[in-house]
Structures are given as structure tokens and as C-alpha cells.
Computed example of a mutant assay.
Amino acid sequence: MATEEIYFKHHELLLPKETHSQESLTFLARDFSFKDDDAIAVTYPKSGTTWMQEILPLVLSEGDLTPIQTIPNWDRVPWLEENRLKEVVHQLSSPRALVTHFPFQLMPQSFFSSKAKVIYVMRNPKDVIVSSYYFHQMAAFLEDPGTWEEFIDKFLEGRVMFGKWTDHVKSWKHTDLGDRIMHITYEQMIQDLPAALRLIANFLGKKLSEEVIKKIADHCSFKSMKVNIMSNFSLVPKMYMDADKSQFLRKGIVGDWKKHFSSEQLAHFSSTIYKELEGEHFTLPWNLSDTAEVADVHT
């Protein structure tokens, strides 16, 4: 299908028609009100969103497993911009856990007048694009990614849902939210999840015992989430997400990009990212130009 049949544009961002609509965006802008104790995980797609949909309810409830065992993640921690928010918002108990892929400037006015807190999760874009490539293959509501070579150009040019990775990161680095925002990386969480959970809990004002931290870490492991039908998207009909083409929770690792980029592709990818971040006051925690162990041939 053509791009215009799959997506519609919202402030130049491509949004999938299957999950988003003008009605859902209007509801967010006009009818939804943030509460001061809301916790919002913000991610560029394929940067740890599903992980945060598991983590936030457990931290906010101080380890109560009921939500992650009984409620699908898209209803337990709904996307602000998607159609489902209107259907489930009244079922959410405070403190509410929410997620969004929106850049900072598209957040609704009620967000800025609240004290709601944001956890921004950033992931190495080399792994983001690999995960996104496979997701586009299995998700019928997204445009076919084409070849890996073609998808690299689509990603870098922002011809994918929610636009350029660099624009998204810059928007959430340039905020005036002060102590309302916390930045963490996917890689930090992979390296030491209990330590990351302590940071998240402290940020949200939750004093969790080491026993509860361990309990949450165990239930938020990739292994646990992969077999949890409320978290692994296996409840979604095959016509929308075909697990035979690729599992939604595919690997959950750091460094899978090494099996996909050729040296030439990596040079093009990293130079483009770095050029778009020229003059920024922040630096990335990864060396995007690292060619160690890259594939001799690309897939």
C-alpha cells in the first residue's frame, strides 16, 4: 500500500492510521487532563516502550503483580496519542502510568501546566533501526520496510512513524521541565536493571525495599516478558502483527546492529546522525562510528 494509505500526517510526523486518528489526537489535546502524580515514559519507537509498560506499574504499585498479569500492556499503560486512551482512561487508577512517542513540542497544554513526571528512555539508534526494521516486517499497519539498505535511508530521512530519531532526542533534551524529567538509556537498564529500577523509583518518590526491587527486576526480565501474554503482544490478531515473520519481543539485547550494518552503511548512518547533532549541548553515550565486528555483508 502507498504511504498515504497507511499513515496520516500530524505536524509533518507520520502516524499509523490503524492506531491513531484525528479523533484520538483531539481527545488528547482537548479532553485529557494530566494529573500531578502521572508518570509518563517517553520513547522513540523501539527504544524500550514495552519494557517501561512493564516497569512503571510495578514501581508505582510497589511490586503488585496484578496489573502485568491481568491487563494487556496497551491498556495498563496506554499511549497518549493512540485511539485506546479514550476507551481506558477512566479505568486507570492514580498514580497513572502512561507512554508516548510524541516529541516534546507536541505534548498537550495540560501536560505543561501539571507536575507530571517524565522518564525519557534513549537507545542506541543503531539498535533502534534494526529493531524497527523487523517490526516493520511483521506489523501489517506499517509500511513495508523494503530492503535493509532502503530502510536505512527511510530512517535517516524521517520517512518512518514519528520522524527522525535525532529530532525526537533533541526535542526532549531541550526542555524546561527541570526536576520533572529523568533521562536513562536502554543500555543502562540492560547492564544493571536493579540499579535502573532504584533510579526510577527514587525519581517517582517510591521507597522500595531491595526485596521489591528484585521482584520487579525478575518480572521485567526479557525472559519473563516474552512468555507473558499480557506483555508479548501475542493477543494481537495475526492480521495486524504476524509473529511468523518476526517476534515482537525479538531479542532484547544490546549490539544486534553488528550483524546488520556493513562498514559502508555504518559510516553513512553515523555521519548523518552526528551531522544532525552538530552544535548540540549534549553528547551521545555511544560511539556510533565504532566498526568493531560489523558484518562483512549486510542482510
Rank of each mutant, 00 (worst) to 15 (best):
L58W: 07
F261H: 04
T3G: 05
E5I: 08
D218R: 13
E278T: 09
I184A: 05
I40P: 01
Q137S: 05
E293T: 04
D153Y: 04
G158Y: 05
T299D: 14
M189T: 04
P67R: 00
V294Y: 04
F27V: 06
P57R: 01
N73A: 10
P78R: 04
S110W: 07
E210W: 09
N287T: 13
K9A: 11
D290R: 02
V77R: 02
F104S: 11
Q188Y: 05
Y133G: 05
I184F: 04
H174R: 10
M182I: 07
K226M: 03
L98N: 00
P237L: 00
N202W: 02
T50V: 10
K126G: 04
S21Y: 07
S61Y: 08
L284K: 06
I273F: 07
E23M: 13
L28Y: 00
K226R: 14
K164P: 09
P108G: 00
Q265P: 09
I68C: 03
P145Q: 08
Q247N: 14
S93K: 15
Y186C: 03
K126P: 03
E54Y: 00
I213S: 07
Q247M: 14
S209H: 09
I213K: 11
Y274V: 10
D244M: 08
L142F: 10
F222C: 04
D296H: 12
S263L: 12
E150A: 12
T26H: 14
S94W: 04
I152D: 01
Y133K: 04
K9H: 08
Q91L: 15
E280M: 07
M161P: 15
K245E: 04
V77Q: 06
V89F: 13
K170I: 13
G63S: 08
R30M: 10
K206A: 05
K207I: 11
A116S: 11
H174W: 02
K173D: 04
E149R: 13
P237G: 01
E264L: 07
E264W: 06
T100D: 06
P72C: 12
A139E: 01
R96S: 12
I119E: 02
S231D: 12
W165A: 05
K170T: 14
F233E: 12
T26S: 14
K164V: 04
D296K: 13
E143D: 13
F151M: 02
A41E: 08
D179I: 06
